[in-house]
Amino acid sequence: MPNKRPRGPQPHWRPKRETLRVLTAVDTILDRYRDHLPISLRQTWYVLLSDGVMAKIERDYKRMCEYVGMARRSGRIPWDAIRDDTQIAVEAPPSFAGPGDFFTAVDAAVDDYRVDRQTGQPVRLELWCETAGMVPQLVRIGEGFGIACFSGGGFDGLAGKHDAAMRAVEGGRKTLVLHIGDYDPSGEHLFNSLAEDVIAFAQAAGAEVEFERVAVTPEQIATYDLPTAPPKATDRRSFSGTTTTQAEALPPDILATIVREAIAAHRDLEVHRQALAREEAERRAIRERLGRWSDPGEPPAG
């Protein structure tokens, strides 16, 4: 029997009244958090709950996913506004339309020139999050300080843990991992498992690593009145709380503020300003060395 679910673009789709009510609320959310896009479906869902648009039941979550999916197929919601948690990023090898295109890329590369903005700081920072869908938001926050962001979901990422320890060795000073994860038995055990294993690998290689839980904390749940749920009855692992909250329940702007404050607490701002000044001076020097050309199709002189 053929699958009757929608496939491909749906430009002629017209939502029903209830669907339109929910999508109008989603439009408002995307406009409210336009500086933090893309956001994940789960983040959208939690804001809808906070705004009283939908009830916290699995059926409503599935309905929202279907509505948003059709809205994307129809063109109502831009594809790049929503981050799919299961999306896999694949980069093609670089290629160019011709020499002019290449030198345009060189020009853009000079604009993007950066020094290591963590040089001279008391600790080297990394951002880790449990949910892959939150990575793009955290990347935007960390990039201004030269801080990389990693998704640390799962308990069996042995190679990733070892890689983190080796980055600490190469960094030449203490590494502090700022971690964002769910407040539930799984999130607590994930955080502890990651920290213990990475720290052990680092110590064996002569490096120092520490982990700091940035979110979600019981204090944040109370302060921001985040939605909670009881722990799963089937999860027998020890847990410090009595209710659970997912990291994506934090509104994007509040999450950004929390992460920025955590970063600033471990940055020497004068050292950071000096790095930016050095970066700009070296960028000018590169431009002088390459020379400028009026026709992007012509290579620089000399």
Rank of each mutant, 00 (worst) to 15 (best):
K4E: 08
R5T: 10
R5L: 13
P9D: 02
P9R: 08
P9S: 01
H12V: 05
W13F: 05
P15W: 05
P15C: 07
L20M: 08
V22M: 07
D27Q: 07
T28K: 14
D31I: 02
D35A: 15
H36T: 12
P38I: 04
Q43M: 14
Q43F: 01
Q43A: 15
W45G: 06
Y46H: 15
L48N: 04
S50Q: 13
D51V: 01
G52Q: 02
V53P: 01
M54L: 15
K56Y: 07
E58S: 05
D60S: 13
E66W: 13
Y67V: 03
V68Y: 04
M70P: 01
A71Q: 04
R72A: 05
R72G: 00
R72P: 00
P78M: 03
W79L: 14
W79G: 15
A81Y: 12
T86H: 12
A92I: 09
S95V: 07
F96Q: 04
P99T: 09
G100D: 08
D101G: 04
D101V: 10
T104K: 12
V106R: 10
V106T: 03
Y113F: 15
D116V: 00
D116M: 04
Q121A: 07
Q121E: 10
W128R: 10
W128N: 05
C129N: 07
T131D: 13
A132T: 13
V139C: 06
V139I: 13
E143M: 12
E143T: 11
G144V: 03
G146P: 00
D156L: 11
G157Q: 12
H162Y: 14
D163E: 14
D163N: 13
A164P: 02
A164Q: 11
M166Q: 15
V169W: 03
V169G: 06
G171N: 07
R173K: 12
K174R: 14
K174H: 08
V177K: 06
I180E: 08
G181F: 05
N192D: 13
L194V: 02
L194W: 15
A200R: 13
A200I: 04
F201N: 10
A204P: 01
A205E: 15
G206P: 07
A215C: 03
A215M: 03
A215T: 05
A222T: 09
A222F: 00
Y224M: 04
Y224L: 13
D225T: 10
T228L: 02
T228D: 01
A229S: 12
P230D: 13
P231E: 02
P231T: 02
S240M: 12
G241P: 08
T243Q: 12
T243C: 05
L250G: 08
P251I: 03
P252I: 00
A256M: 01
R260W: 04
E261R: 15
D268R: 00
L269I: 08
E270M: 03
A275P: 00
L276V: 10
R278N: 06
E279W: 02
E282K: 11
R284D: 12
R287V: 09
W293H: 08
D295G: 08
P300H: 04
